[in-house]
Protein backbone atom coordinates (compact mmCIF):
# COMPACT_ATOMS: atom_id res chain seq x y z
CA UNK A 1 0.00 0.00 0.00
CA UNK A 2 2.70 2.45 1.07
CA UNK A 3 4.99 1.47 -1.77
CA UNK A 4 2.10 1.94 -4.20
CA UNK A 5 1.66 5.51 -3.03
CA UNK A 6 5.41 6.19 -3.33
CA UNK A 7 5.40 4.68 -6.83
CA UNK A 8 2.47 6.84 -7.86
CA UNK A 9 4.20 9.93 -6.49
CA UNK A 10 7.28 9.05 -8.57
CA UNK A 11 5.01 8.67 -11.62
CA UNK A 12 3.50 12.04 -10.78
CA UNK A 13 6.91 13.70 -10.55
CA UNK A 14 7.84 12.37 -14.00
CA UNK A 15 4.58 13.68 -15.48
CA UNK A 16 5.04 16.92 -13.56
CA UNK A 17 8.53 17.40 -15.02
CA UNK A 18 7.12 17.25 -18.54
CA UNK A 19 4.41 19.76 -17.68
CA UNK A 20 6.95 21.98 -15.92
CA UNK A 21 9.28 22.31 -18.91
CA UNK A 22 6.37 23.20 -21.21
CA UNK A 23 4.68 25.52 -18.73
CA UNK A 24 7.75 27.53 -17.80
CA UNK A 25 8.12 28.73 -21.38
CA UNK A 26 4.47 29.71 -21.52
CA UNK A 27 4.69 31.60 -18.25
CA UNK A 28 7.81 33.54 -19.32
CA UNK A 29 6.13 34.53 -22.57
CA UNK A 30 3.17 35.73 -20.56
CA UNK A 31 5.56 37.72 -18.40
CA UNK A 32 6.95 39.81 -21.23
CA UNK A 33 3.90 39.98 -23.49
CA UNK A 34 0.94 39.82 -21.11
CA UNK A 35 -0.55 37.31 -23.54
CA UNK A 36 -1.33 33.67 -22.99
CA UNK A 37 0.31 31.75 -25.81
CA UNK A 38 -2.45 29.40 -26.94
CA UNK A 39 -0.12 27.97 -29.56
CA UNK A 40 2.36 26.76 -26.97
CA UNK A 41 1.42 23.09 -27.26
CA UNK A 42 2.03 23.39 -31.00
CA UNK A 43 5.75 23.97 -30.40
CA UNK A 44 5.76 20.83 -28.29
CA UNK A 45 4.19 19.06 -31.26
CA UNK A 46 6.66 20.61 -33.74
CA UNK A 47 9.61 19.45 -31.66
CA UNK A 48 8.25 15.92 -31.57
CA UNK A 49 7.58 15.93 -35.32
CA UNK A 50 11.07 17.25 -36.02
CA UNK A 51 12.59 14.42 -33.99
CA UNK A 52 10.28 11.83 -35.55
CA UNK A 53 11.23 13.09 -39.01
CA UNK A 54 14.93 12.86 -38.12
CA UNK A 55 14.60 9.28 -36.85
CA UNK A 56 12.21 7.96 -39.50
CA UNK A 57 13.24 9.79 -42.67
CA UNK A 58 16.86 10.82 -42.06
CA UNK A 59 17.77 7.69 -40.12
CA UNK A 60 19.47 9.69 -37.36
CA UNK A 61 19.98 8.45 -33.81
CA UNK A 62 17.65 9.56 -31.02
CA UNK A 63 20.31 11.88 -29.52
CA UNK A 64 20.71 13.66 -32.86
CA UNK A 65 16.94 13.83 -33.28
CA UNK A 66 16.67 15.84 -30.05
CA UNK A 67 18.86 18.52 -31.64
CA UNK A 68 16.94 18.40 -34.96
CA UNK A 69 13.59 18.66 -33.15
CA UNK A 70 14.62 21.62 -31.01
CA UNK A 71 16.47 23.45 -33.80
CA UNK A 72 13.62 23.14 -36.30
CA UNK A 73 11.24 24.51 -33.68
CA UNK A 74 13.59 27.41 -33.02
CA UNK A 75 13.49 28.29 -36.74
CA UNK A 76 9.68 28.28 -36.76
CA UNK A 77 9.60 30.23 -33.50
CA UNK A 78 11.97 32.84 -34.95
CA UNK A 79 9.67 33.40 -37.93
CA UNK A 80 6.54 33.52 -35.79
CA UNK A 81 8.33 35.74 -33.28
CA UNK A 82 9.41 38.25 -35.92
CA UNK A 83 6.12 38.33 -37.78
CA UNK A 84 3.61 38.05 -34.95
CA UNK A 85 4.88 38.14 -31.38
CA UNK A 86 6.97 41.31 -31.70
CA UNK A 87 3.94 43.20 -32.98
CA UNK A 88 2.00 42.29 -29.88
CA UNK A 89 4.07 44.53 -27.59
CA UNK A 90 1.58 47.00 -26.18
CA UNK A 91 -1.32 45.51 -28.14
CA UNK A 92 -4.62 44.83 -26.30
CA UNK A 93 -5.05 41.43 -24.63
CA UNK A 94 -7.61 40.15 -27.14
CA UNK A 95 -5.11 40.64 -29.98
CA UNK A 96 -2.81 38.17 -28.26
CA UNK A 97 -5.58 35.60 -27.80
CA UNK A 98 -6.65 35.81 -31.44
CA UNK A 99 -3.13 35.82 -32.85
CA UNK A 100 -1.90 32.83 -30.84
CA UNK A 101 -5.08 30.81 -31.45
CA UNK A 102 -4.68 31.54 -35.15
CA UNK A 103 -1.05 30.45 -35.10
CA UNK A 104 -2.08 27.23 -33.31
CA UNK A 105 -4.54 26.44 -36.14
CA UNK A 106 -2.04 27.27 -38.87
CA UNK A 107 0.81 25.22 -37.36
CA UNK A 108 -1.39 22.24 -36.54
CA UNK A 109 -3.04 22.06 -39.94
CA UNK A 110 0.21 22.64 -41.82
CA UNK A 111 1.67 19.60 -40.10
CA UNK A 112 -1.50 17.57 -40.88
CA UNK A 113 -1.34 18.67 -44.53
CA UNK A 114 2.33 17.79 -44.87
CA UNK A 115 2.49 14.55 -42.89
CA UNK A 116 -1.17 13.41 -42.88
CA UNK A 117 -3.61 13.25 -39.97
CA UNK A 118 -2.78 9.73 -38.82
CA UNK A 119 -0.74 8.68 -35.79
CA UNK A 120 2.94 8.18 -36.36
CA UNK A 121 4.97 5.70 -34.43
CA UNK A 122 8.01 7.13 -32.63
CA UNK A 123 10.63 4.42 -32.51
CA UNK A 124 13.65 6.11 -30.88
CA UNK A 125 14.60 6.56 -27.24
CA UNK A 126 15.42 4.47 -24.19
CA UNK A 127 12.29 2.48 -23.48
CA UNK A 128 13.87 -0.49 -21.72
CA UNK A 129 12.75 -0.55 -18.09
CA UNK A 130 15.31 0.05 -15.35
CA UNK A 131 14.74 -0.88 -11.74
CA UNK A 132 15.41 1.92 -9.27
CA UNK A 133 14.48 1.71 -5.56
CA UNK A 134 12.27 -1.24 -6.39
CA UNK A 135 10.28 0.65 -9.05
CA UNK A 136 10.44 -0.21 -12.68
CA UNK A 137 10.83 2.91 -14.85
CA UNK A 138 11.73 3.28 -18.51
CA UNK A 139 15.20 4.78 -18.91
CA UNK A 140 13.60 7.63 -20.84
CA UNK A 141 11.61 8.75 -17.79
CA UNK A 142 14.78 8.96 -15.74
CA UNK A 143 16.26 11.06 -18.54
CA UNK A 144 13.27 13.41 -18.31
CA UNK A 145 13.85 13.85 -14.57
CA UNK A 146 17.58 14.33 -15.07
CA UNK A 147 17.01 17.01 -17.72
CA UNK A 148 14.24 18.82 -15.87
CA UNK A 149 16.25 19.77 -12.78
CA UNK A 150 19.22 21.48 -14.48
CA UNK A 151 16.83 23.24 -16.86
CA UNK A 152 15.02 24.80 -13.92
CA UNK A 153 18.13 25.63 -11.97
CA UNK A 154 19.58 27.22 -15.11
CA UNK A 155 16.41 29.23 -15.75
CA UNK A 156 16.28 30.41 -12.15
CA UNK A 157 19.88 31.65 -12.39
CA UNK A 158 19.30 33.23 -15.77
CA UNK A 159 16.23 35.12 -14.62
CA UNK A 160 17.94 36.28 -11.42
CA UNK A 161 21.47 37.15 -12.54
CA UNK A 162 21.95 37.42 -16.29
CA UNK A 163 21.39 40.61 -18.25
CA UNK A 164 18.85 38.83 -20.46
CA UNK A 165 16.95 37.55 -17.41
CA UNK A 166 17.00 40.95 -15.76
CA UNK A 167 15.70 42.65 -18.86
CA UNK A 168 12.97 40.00 -19.13
CA UNK A 169 11.85 40.80 -15.60
CA UNK A 170 12.09 44.50 -16.33
CA UNK A 171 9.92 44.19 -19.45
CA UNK A 172 7.36 42.19 -17.49
CA UNK A 173 7.14 45.03 -14.96
CA UNK A 174 7.02 48.11 -17.13
CA UNK A 175 7.46 48.30 -20.89
CA UNK A 176 7.62 52.14 -21.08
CA UNK A 177 10.35 52.45 -18.44
CA UNK A 178 12.40 49.79 -20.25
CA UNK A 179 12.23 51.80 -23.43
CA UNK A 180 13.32 54.92 -21.55
CA UNK A 181 16.42 53.23 -20.08
CA UNK A 182 17.36 51.67 -23.42
CA UNK A 183 16.23 48.06 -23.17
CA UNK A 184 15.40 46.73 -26.63
CA UNK A 185 11.89 45.48 -25.83
CA UNK A 186 11.15 43.72 -29.16
CA UNK A 187 14.45 41.87 -28.88
CA UNK A 188 13.70 40.72 -25.34
CA UNK A 189 10.26 39.57 -26.49
CA UNK A 190 11.74 37.63 -29.41
CA UNK A 191 14.39 35.95 -27.26
CA UNK A 192 11.93 34.99 -24.55
CA UNK A 193 9.54 33.61 -27.13
CA UNK A 194 12.21 31.50 -28.83
CA UNK A 195 13.45 30.22 -25.47
CA UNK A 196 9.91 29.25 -24.44
CA UNK A 197 9.19 27.49 -27.73
CA UNK A 198 12.52 25.64 -27.60
CA UNK A 199 11.75 24.39 -24.08
CA UNK A 200 8.34 23.15 -25.23
CA UNK A 201 10.01 21.36 -28.15
CA UNK A 202 12.59 19.80 -25.82
CA UNK A 203 9.81 18.51 -23.61
CA UNK A 204 8.07 17.04 -26.68
CA UNK A 205 11.17 15.25 -27.90
CA UNK A 206 11.90 13.87 -24.43
CA UNK A 207 8.41 12.44 -23.98
CA UNK A 208 7.98 11.09 -27.52
CA UNK A 209 9.57 7.67 -26.84
CA UNK A 210 7.26 6.92 -23.89
CA UNK A 211 4.16 8.42 -25.47
CA UNK A 212 4.91 6.43 -28.65
CA UNK A 213 2.45 8.22 -30.93
CA UNK A 214 3.04 11.46 -32.80
CA UNK A 215 0.17 13.33 -34.47
CA UNK A 216 -0.85 16.83 -35.54
CA UNK A 217 -3.38 17.45 -32.78
CA UNK A 218 -1.15 16.36 -29.90
CA UNK A 219 -0.29 19.91 -28.83
CA UNK A 220 -3.84 20.90 -27.88
CA UNK A 221 -3.99 18.61 -24.89
CA UNK A 222 -0.68 19.99 -23.64
CA UNK A 223 -1.83 23.61 -23.97
CA UNK A 224 -4.88 22.87 -21.87
CA UNK A 225 -2.91 20.98 -19.22
CA UNK A 226 -0.45 23.86 -19.04
CA UNK A 227 -3.04 26.64 -18.58
CA UNK A 228 -4.02 25.76 -14.98
CA UNK A 229 -0.35 25.24 -14.12
CA UNK A 230 0.76 28.71 -15.12
CA UNK A 231 -2.22 30.30 -13.38
CA UNK A 232 -1.52 28.30 -10.22
CA UNK A 233 2.16 29.09 -10.34
CA UNK A 234 1.44 32.81 -10.59
CA UNK A 235 1.63 34.06 -14.17
CA UNK A 236 5.24 34.87 -15.09
CA UNK A 237 6.73 33.08 -12.06
CA UNK A 238 9.37 30.42 -12.87
CA UNK A 239 9.67 28.80 -9.42
CA UNK A 240 5.93 28.81 -8.88
CA UNK A 241 5.39 27.08 -12.21
CA UNK A 242 7.74 24.28 -11.20
CA UNK A 243 5.90 23.63 -7.93
CA UNK A 244 2.46 23.89 -9.57
CA UNK A 245 3.48 21.41 -12.29
CA UNK A 246 4.64 18.91 -9.68
CA UNK A 247 1.42 19.32 -7.68
CA UNK A 248 -0.66 18.70 -10.79
CA UNK A 249 1.45 15.74 -11.93
CA UNK A 250 1.21 14.01 -8.55
CA UNK A 251 -2.49 14.83 -8.12
CA UNK A 252 -3.27 13.39 -11.58
CA UNK A 253 -1.34 10.24 -10.82
CA UNK A 254 -3.12 9.67 -7.51
CA UNK A 255 -6.53 10.36 -9.01
CA UNK A 256 -5.87 7.94 -11.88
CA UNK A 257 -4.97 5.26 -9.32
CA UNK A 258 -7.54 5.74 -6.61
CA UNK A 259 -10.49 7.38 -8.36
CA UNK A 260 -10.31 6.28 -11.99
CA UNK A 261 -8.42 7.11 -15.15
CA UNK A 262 -11.46 8.78 -16.69
CA UNK A 263 -11.26 11.59 -14.09
CA UNK A 264 -7.64 12.40 -14.78
CA UNK A 265 -8.23 15.36 -17.09
CA UNK A 266 -10.55 17.03 -14.60
CA UNK A 267 -7.77 17.22 -12.00
CA UNK A 268 -6.03 20.26 -13.46
CA UNK A 269 -8.97 22.61 -13.36
CA UNK A 270 -10.38 21.17 -10.11
CA UNK A 271 -7.02 21.80 -8.39
CA UNK A 272 -6.96 25.26 -9.92
CA UNK A 273 -10.38 26.14 -8.53
CA UNK A 274 -9.46 24.90 -5.04
CA UNK A 275 -6.21 26.80 -5.09
CA UNK A 276 -7.76 30.02 -6.34
CA UNK A 277 -10.22 29.90 -3.44
CA UNK A 278 -7.29 29.72 -1.05
CA UNK A 279 -4.76 31.98 -2.81
CA UNK A 280 -6.42 33.98 -5.58
CA UNK A 281 -3.12 35.50 -6.81
CA UNK A 282 -1.28 32.22 -7.36
CA UNK A 283 0.86 30.11 -5.07
CA UNK A 284 3.84 32.41 -4.80
CA UNK A 285 2.64 35.94 -5.49
CA UNK A 286 1.83 37.89 -2.40
CA UNK A 287 -0.50 40.20 -4.27
CA UNK A 288 -1.87 40.85 -7.71
CA UNK A 289 0.67 42.52 -9.93
CA UNK A 290 -1.34 42.78 -13.08
Amino acid sequence: MFSTIIEQIVNGIVTGSVYAIVAVGMTMIFGVLRAINFAHGEYYMLGTFGAWFAVDYLGLSYEASIIVGVLSTIVVAYVVGRLVMQRMVGAPAEAGVLATLGIALVLQNTVILVFGGGYKFFSGGYIEPLSILGFSLAGQRILILVVCLPVFIGLEFMVTYSRMGKSMRAVSQNVECCEVVGIDVPKVVLHTFILGAALAALSGVLTAPVNVSVYGGMGELITFKTLPIIIMGGLGNVRGTFVAAMILGIAESLVATYVGLQFRDTVGFATLILMLMWRPYGLFSTQARF
Binding site: N11, S213, L261
Partner: peptide
Protein backbone atom coordinates in the same frame (compact mmCIF):
# COMPACT_ATOMS: atom_id res chain seq x y z
CA UNK B 1 -11.06 -2.66 -11.33
CA UNK B 2 -12.68 -0.53 -13.99
CA UNK B 3 -11.03 2.38 -15.82
CA UNK B 4 -11.80 4.26 -19.00
CA UNK B 5 -9.29 6.35 -20.88
CA UNK B 6 -9.94 9.48 -22.92
CA UNK B 7 -8.99 9.54 -26.59
CA UNK B 8 -5.45 10.88 -26.78
CA UNK B 9 -4.45 9.68 -23.29
CA UNK B 10 -0.77 8.69 -23.19
CA UNK B 11 0.08 7.97 -19.56
CA UNK B 12 -1.17 4.61 -18.29
CA UNK B 13 1.48 3.97 -15.66
CA UNK B 14 -0.75 4.72 -12.68
CA UNK B 15 -3.61 2.57 -13.81
CA UNK B 16 -1.36 -0.28 -14.95
CA UNK B 17 0.43 -0.28 -11.58
CA UNK B 18 -2.97 -0.56 -9.91
CA UNK B 19 -3.90 -3.48 -12.17
CA UNK B 20 -0.57 -5.18 -11.45
CA UNK B 21 -1.14 -4.93 -7.71
Amino acid sequence: SEDYYKEGEVDFRSVLAKIRD
